[in-house]
């Protein structure tokens, strides 16, 4: 409903976008160059929208629109994670004006490297949600009938917990983590959906859970009711692929678009698992 800004004098008329494409899982990837007319207030999402509408590469070949994921476009849903000029981030907040200042040559888009590519910029991030299952990131309420209000909480506790509850499972922390490595499985011939799912879950469970899930475990352990099941979450964090894999590179906290104090969560989980393990040895 609004007219857009006037273009600044030095704005380019067009700019180039290099996209690393891949037609399907396991396929070869290839670069493709697109030329996009410059508009004001563009972000990488609107660039990809223009590319989809053009369906034509710089060379003039008709090409299928680049596949990518997006949803909210205001950085709260976590969909549009990709590598923009080599750095993992949400495409919606990647503003073209700023990207072109940093890299006047153009913009380079690649899919995340730590997750299997589905197509072009779309990756399969199911492993993240499996990790949330593993650490039991929920409150074990009795049920959904009315049972009065929840426990009272101090504003201080709320202010500590709230940032953690903003995690949108975008995967930036995992992409940047040198300890989080790609797991890509392919379905065996004749393997059923359920069997493949089970094998996948098992494989995911033995690989690193990652900063996001550690932070969620800390969040729920800090909840007055959630703490009843803290032991189960800490058990999960000390299983194979647990918190011990963390290498303290602290990239997670640096790339988190929501600025969640992930390394604080990791240290808290470190302390909790230390005590938990000692208690298991000496109390049982």
């Amino acid at each position: 409903m609004t007219a857009s800004h006037q273009s600044p004098a030095d704005a380019p008329r067009t700019f180039d976008v290099r996209v690393l494409r891949q037609d399907g899982p396991g396929g070869a990837s290839y670069w493709e160059r697109h030329r996009v007319p410059y508009e004001h207030d563009m972000n990488v999402i609107s660039v990809l929208q223009r590319i989809a509408a053009q369906s034509r590469s710089v060379e003039g070949d008709e090409v299928a629109p680049v596949a990518w994921e997006c949803c909210c476009l205001e950085e709260v849903c976590g969909s549009c994670t990709m590598l923009v000029n080599g750095k993992v981030r949400q495409a919606c907040t990647a503003l073209v004006d700023r990207l072109l200042v940093d890299e006047p040559e153009g913009i380079e888009l690649r899919p995340m490297g730590k997750f299997p590519v589905v197509r072009d910029l779309v990756v399969e991030r199911q492993r993240m949600f499996r990790a949330l299952e593993k650490v039991r990131a929920w409150i074990d309420v009795d049920g959904y009938y009315d049972a009065g209000p929840g426990p009272r909480q101090s504003p201080e506790d709320q202010e500590v917990a709230y940032p953690l509850s903003q995690c949108m499972s975008c995967g930036c922390c995992l992409e940047a983590c040198p300890q989080y490595t790609k797991v890509e499985l392919t379905r065996d011939p004749g393997e059923s959906d359920a069997d493949f799912q089970a094998r996948q879950d098992q494989t995911y469970d033995s690989a690193f859970v990652g900063a996001h899930a550690i932070s969620q475990a800390v969040l729920f352990n800090s909840h007055p009711t959630g703490t009843y099941n803290a032991g189960k979450r800490l058990d999960a964090l000390t299983q194979e692929g647990g918190i011990q894999i963390c290498g303290n590179a602290q990239n997670c906290v640096a790339v988190c678009p929501k600025e969640i104090p992930l390394t604080t969560s990791i240290a808290k989980a470190g302390r909790q698992t230390t005590w938990h393990q000692l208690k298991k040895w000496f109390d049982q």
Binding site: Y144, P149, G150, R152, A161, Y162
Partner: peptide
């Protein structure tokens, strides 16, 4: 009011008053 209570129990981190009630 019951819906808020339920969501509170499910762990939603509502802002709090200084006495610990939902703000």
């Amino acid at each position: 009011p019951k819906v808020i209570d339920l969501m509170d129990r499910l762990g939603v981190r509502f802002n709090r008053t200084s006495e610990g009630f939902i703000d």
